Amino acid sequence: MRLILLGPPGAGKGTQSARLVNRHGIPQLSTGDMLRAAVKAGTPVGLRAKAIMDAGNLVSDDVVIGIVADRIDEADCRKGFILDGFPRTIAQAEALEQMLAGKGTKLDVVIELKVDQTKLIDRIIKRAEETKARGEAVRKDDDPDVFKTRLDAYNRDTAAISPFYSERGKLIQIDGMRSIDEVSADIEKTLSHLDEEVESR
């Protein structure tokens, strides 16, 4: 099962990814984690990434794709993988498609958690206020201004990926505003339908 989880920050992708990992025994691949692992391992693409980062520059799409390509060849990805936080742009989505085709494989599904962004911001503000009221420091991700900046970046760069995958018949949208268990149940229903389609071919 090769899938992408899409959705703005705060939509619950991390929570749902963790459940999918436990239920299906496939790894969640975060580009940040993969990048750090490749640099630490000193792989050819990891060394390229290290040189770019040491120079204070952002790692280019081709380097990130190279890291993803190496990672999905590892044994734990044989049954599939979950991509979380990647691709972030149309260019990355196209490069990912080409890379997978080169390996003779493709994505099974792209699941987008649809959320009411106004309510998300309200939720973050409330969470920050409750944290302050307890006398605790507000996590950087829960700072409303930081959150709004991340949301703006998502709407500017990543939201365009939904139509890209919709045109390819890969996109399934799920209401992410309900309870965690209800969202999980919907995701599992989607995946079981996919398994049935694969078996009937």
Rank of each mutant, 00 (worst) to 15 (best):
R150S: 13
L96F: 09
V138S: 04
E167K: 13
G32P: 04
V146K: 12
N155H: 14
L191H: 11
D141T: 01
P87Y: 10
R23W: 01
K170Q: 15
R150P: 14
V68C: 02
E136M: 13
P87K: 07
D62S: 09
V39W: 02
S166R: 15
Y165C: 11
I172M: 11
K50I: 01
Y165P: 13
F164S: 06
A137T: 12
I125R: 11
E167C: 05
G85L: 09
R48N: 03
A37H: 03
L113F: 14
V115I: 15
D181L: 03
D62F: 05
N155W: 09
T149M: 11
D186F: 09
D70S: 10
G80C: 04
E136F: 14
I72L: 13
A37S: 12
A49K: 01
S17N: 10
S17Q: 10
G14M: 00
A101Y: 09
P8L: 13
E199G: 00
S192K: 10
E196Y: 02
A95Q: 08
K189H: 13
V68A: 05
E112G: 11
S60V: 04
V198D: 07
S184R: 06
I65Y: 04
S179F: 00
Y165R: 09
G10F: 07
K126R: 15
I26Y: 11
C77Q: 06
E94K: 06
F86K: 03
H193M: 11
R19E: 07
Q16F: 03
A133I: 09
D186K: 14
A18H: 10
H24D: 05
R123C: 14
S30Y: 03
T15N: 02
D108P: 07
A41K: 14
I82L: 05
G85H: 07
I72A: 12
S200L: 03
Y165E: 12
L171M: 13
M34P: 01
D145W: 04
E182R: 12
G14P: 00
D141C: 07
A137G: 05
D76I: 12
S179H: 04
A75M: 08
A38N: 12
R150I: 08
V138W: 03
V21D: 09
G32I: 00
N155Y: 11
I4L: 11
P8C: 14
Q92C: 06
D33T: 08
I65H: 05
H24E: 08
S166H: 14
V68F: 07
A51R: 00
D186W: 02
G7N: 08
P144G: 10
F164E: 06
A128I: 08
T31E: 00
H193G: 10
A128G: 06
Q173R: 14
G80F: 00
D73M: 13
P144A: 11
A185P: 00
A41P: 14
K126E: 13
A11P: 11
D142R: 02
V68W: 05
D54M: 02
I52D: 00
S192G: 01
A159F: 06
A133S: 15
A159K: 12
A159C: 04
L3G: 11
D152C: 04
S166V: 03
A91D: 08
